[in-house]
Simulated assay, not measured.
Amino acid sequence: MPLAPSSAAARPPRRAVLAAASVLALMALASCSTEPTATSVPAPESFVEGLDVPWSIAFHDGVALVSERDSGRVLEIAEDGETREVGIIDGVTPGGEGGLLGLAVHDGEVYSYSTARSGNRVERRPLSGAPGDLSLGAATTVIDGIPAAGNHNGGRIAFGPDGMLYVTTGDAGDRESAQDLDSLGGKILRLTPTGGIPDDNPFEGSPVYSYGHRNPQGIAWDAEGRMFATEFGQDTWDELNVIEPGGDYGWPAVEGIAEDSAFIDPVQQWRPDAASPSGMAVTGSDIVIANLRGERLRIVPLDDLTASTEQFTGEFGRLRDVVVGAGGTFWILTNNTDGRGSPAEGDDRILRLGRD
């Protein structure tokens, strides 16, 4: 039987907001409207090139780490843009959308979400050495048994302002699993850093934080502790959601804004050919979203979640991830070598906007 919500619904507390992006980048972000704008923005610098199906960027003491989906490699990025292999995640079974996906760093350990023969899993590994000589240690499993398939694997992991680990999972092609609270598919999970179930999770004894998701791809928080998630729809609507503990986001009964009181509607929706929203970041005033099929960076102002502005549409192909780096720079990860894009010379790459 489905678990009943516990009396204490876990809401992340307030935290200090990410450092504001550089003035150059915020020239675009400060003036969002409901229509695309031609605001003059400096062209991003092609900072790193020659990546093989990259998926996620995470930072360790200011050093960028990048995951490669099919090779299973974790790379560190030097200050001059050169790459070096930190380690290979053992047992990765790439195929379709599966492989080595999300990365996160917490207390000197690298957390990875990857597809193995037995399903998707999250592992943690100690990271040792100095920049230029970093290496990964032995793996400890955080959670496994997450449904896997050729598509809809979720894969984004991040630590919230409450210090807990949040994990997005897809329905792995089993649509009904998204509504099954006994399944890990089609959910956002919340765990302690070692894989325990927090006492204040919304469903007692369960890692499930929210459900009714098809394939959530990005998560981030603002200064007030609000949690946001991007989600791939099927044929009609992709979504931006505000995540509530214990919330049901409707899949597969509904897609996009349904105005059905049984479900939580997205705050914004887009046609898939203009979106496929993936990784996201939050600055002091905006949500910034990387889009795959839509091949654009989308900016949503925090003070009007129904509005958006677009930048770089079609200029760099598919965009998989966006993060805020040192000095408030934006790091944008392209994803044109994954079999669905049209790689240009130098792809895949990290684009950097705003010099620190």
Rank of each mutant, 00 (worst) to 15 (best):
R175N: 11
R14D: 07
F312V: 00
D248S: 13
E123P: 00
P266T: 09
A262Y: 10
L165T: 01
E255P: 04
V122F: 04
P198Y: 10
D70A: 13
E295V: 03
G87N: 07
T230N: 06
P198M: 03
D90K: 14
D80T: 05
G72V: 04
I299T: 00
L18M: 08
I157A: 06
R352P: 06
I299S: 01
E82N: 13
V208C: 01
R355N: 14
A220M: 02
G205Q: 01
N241G: 12
P42C: 09
P147Y: 14
R214I: 06
H60A: 12
I299M: 00
P277G: 03
T34M: 10
D174T: 14
R349T: 07
V324K: 07
P12Y: 06
G339H: 12
T93N: 10
E310Y: 09
V17C: 14
F203W: 03
P272V: 10
F47I: 01
G87W: 12
S210Q: 04
G328Y: 03
G294I: 02
V288G: 05
F232P: 00
S31D: 13
G346T: 06
S46A: 15
V53W: 06
L333Y: 13
D286K: 07
E255I: 08
A139F: 05
F312R: 02
G325C: 08
E68Y: 12
L191M: 05
G212C: 11
F203I: 01
S33R: 14
G205H: 01
V322Y: 11
D273E: 14
G205N: 01
E123H: 08
A58C: 05
A78N: 11
L65Y: 11
V53E: 09
R124E: 02
L165R: 01
P245M: 05
Y249K: 09
V208D: 01
T236M: 12
E68I: 03
